[in-house]
Amino acid sequence: MKTLFGVWVVAVAALGPVLAHGAEPAQPPAVEPDYVAPAASLAPERVQDMQRRLLDWPGLARYREDNARLPPREPGRVVFYGDSITDGWGRVPGTAFFPGKPYVNRGISGQTTAQMLVRFRQDVIALHPEAVVILAGTNDIAGNTGPATQGMIEDNLRSMTQLAQANGIRVVLASVLPASEYPWRPGYRPAGRIRALNRWIEQYAHASGAVYLDYHTAMANAEGGLDARLADDGVHPTPAGYEAMAPLAQQAVDAALVRE
């Protein structure tokens, strides 16, 4: 892993600075090490896993049948849209996903904003929600689908926001949750990039008429990460983490639903 890690840092350094505001130093974009490793060095099962994922790169199959079973429209419907942090909400043992509310979970573990943009029409617009809560970007920073600059992440979030608003859907843009490291990217320190992205998300939310949902301020520790009580692996919330997020999300949804 150390050899591969050194390879990808060199491979993506040419993408240049990440921070648009220049407020603090940041590492270059990360990338999944398998994507830059010599093909012959990869175990067959790793290649097979990548092939499987590429057959449905945006994850359109995940919720297709669930979407078909939903009533076409439902008063107060809100789609929570994101990656594993959303995906686990109500599915991780000990967590509850807004009992009694007509809220729909459309998170997919590991996804980046590029994948989410592709499935946005199927998993958000076609469900005719009154609002969507978008929580995404940490997997882009981790390089799950290739190196991503902040500008690339901004473009995808901007496009999702514009698609929603063009279809009469109110938008809540959530800050990326704190993380000082990723268990699946040893040695990479994402806290600075997360803070920079969150500054842009907040500014764009205000400029676009979306509601900004600030998880980061309420949950970050001194290192810009998550304490074990909130996320035992430093990334994915525990029941206590989701408990901390729930009232913040509900307040943001309430604010969005009263907007014209």
Rank of each mutant, 00 (worst) to 15 (best):
Q122Y: 04
R259M: 12
W8H: 06
P28H: 07
A246D: 08
A240G: 00
R69A: 15
G168R: 15
A222Q: 13
M50H: 09
M245R: 01
F120C: 13
P29V: 08
R73T: 15
A68Y: 12
V79P: 13
A222G: 10
G22E: 09
G100S: 05
W89E: 04
E260F: 14
R73Q: 15
A210G: 11
L157C: 03
Y242F: 01
A210D: 10
E65Y: 07
G187W: 08
Y242T: 01
D83M: 01
L127P: 07
S208M: 05
A61W: 05
D34S: 06
G187A: 03
P28L: 08
P186Y: 14
A166L: 09
P239T: 05
L4N: 08
H21E: 15
V172S: 01
G94D: 08
L226D: 08
A11K: 11
A240T: 05
P72E: 15
S159L: 13
A40E: 04
A256S: 05
P33T: 05
E32Y: 13
S159Y: 07
K101S: 15
A11Y: 09
G143R: 05
Q111A: 01
Q162F: 15
P38I: 03
L213V: 04
A222M: 14
I169T: 07
I85S: 07
V124I: 11
A228G: 07
D232N: 04
I125H: 12
A68V: 08
D227R: 02
T149Q: 03
Y215M: 01
E202F: 00
V172D: 05
L230F: 03
V211F: 00
Q51Y: 11
V172N: 00
A246V: 03
H236M: 02
V31Q: 05
Q115P: 02
E74G: 04
G234A: 00
G88D: 03
R229M: 06
